[in-house]
Design a protein around this nucleic acid. Structure first.
Lengths: 189, 189
DNA sequence: AATTATAGTAAACATTTGTTCACTGTCAAG
DNA sequence: CTTGACAGTGAACAAATGTTTACTATAATT
């Protein structure tokens, strides 16, 4: 399989974080006429991989999209119906890049919700959270990552680990929330 | 906090998947001289947010980078030492976009390694895997996601769930590997 | 008060951009 | 065999690009 041109283009974008100009594509694809590039691009525009707006090229969501399968229990993989038009994993996971940051997790207190030591969580910076959210909080001036719970009787909030071996964490002085966990990410190997 | 110009630029890139031209930046930033843009860009180039190569602008890894913290058990978050220069979560998670695809997980057979129903796994398409890898495989013509194990005595491979409630899966006829799980991703809410 | 850096305007310019037009060879279909 | 579609060459071109130079106003420093 001789690497096709779209792959070459994707590789260029991955490396340079931009699309090449037509003259750059000349050498990238091995053409000697810009018109060849022109026609090729138009084909990709029609196919929906690339967009033109006021003469500027930009990749479309489709350009990045990885095929997404669903695995049926019975045993056959199918193309997942949901063409949720998320562009990249970034766009899927990080809604507001300006308020988001990453946190490398340590400890085993959240294994119950599938957050393990070494995982990376995406946190959205905010001071308010809903009950049940996984929050980054400071409880009695100590930082921690736990589930936010509410004690209806005492009308207070407290923190709970997602691991039966830890007790509930009830603040003596203060419980301050700094962010909410929006996603987890784990790499194998 | 009046949204600063770098944020405007990031927003533009997130929306259009490209950097604006200087003339577009005029209106984006509210300048009336291209030279103002020119100087601003050069500042960002020096700061390492943007790169110029042969007159073409491109964002650097730094442009995308989210702050990455580490959480010490004792209770204080610190800037994670590892400035691994991964660009985006995509680049961190997906090494080879041409051979990768996504799979939405169903079932509870992999909860032991923190893969739950509804999670999305990044799979690298390949026919060979190492013992211990989490693989997408066809065992006796049925698709499944399990851990690849080796039976040294019988000199055969078999599959194992990461959930004690399932027995080992030993192939009667065939065990064919289609890909290896490189990462998991889970979104909350 | 004088000085220096910073942030922006305004105009001019060579280079490069994407596009268009006319043309050629190749291959598959009628 | 002819026809038409397809893939590419080559040259020409208006428009837009990033850059440079000269100048102004504002704020900060000495």
């Amino acid at each position: 399989m001789t690497t096709d041109r779209l792959s070459l283009l994707k590789r260029f974008f991955k490396k340079n974080r931009r699309l090449p100009s037509y003259s750059e594509m000349l050498s990238l694809f091995g053409f000697s006429s810009k018109n060849a590039v022109f026609k090729l691009i138009n084909k990709w525009v029609e196919a929906g991989f690339i967009k033109k707006e006021s003469g500027k090229l930009a990749p479309t969501p489709r350009f990045f999209a990885l095929p997404m399968l669903g695995l049926i229990k019975a045993g056959y993989p199918i193309l997942a119906e949901e063409n949720r038009n998320y562009l990249t994993l970034d766009d899927y996971l990080i809604e507001d890049p300006t308020s988001a940051f990453l946190l490398k997790v340590s400890g085993d207190s959240m294994t119950g919700v599938g957050i393990f030591e070494g995982d990376i969580v995406v946190i959205e910076r905010k001071r308010q959270a809903s009950i049940g959210d996984i929050v980054l909080a400071q409880i009695d001036h100590e930082w921690t990552l736990k589930i936010l719970r509410r004690d209806r009787m005492k009308r207070t909030n407290y923190l709970e680990a997602a691991n039966p071996k830890y007790p509930a964490f009830r603040p003596r002085e203060s419980l301050e929330i700094f962010g909410v966990v929006k996603a987890v990410v784990r790499k194998f190997n």
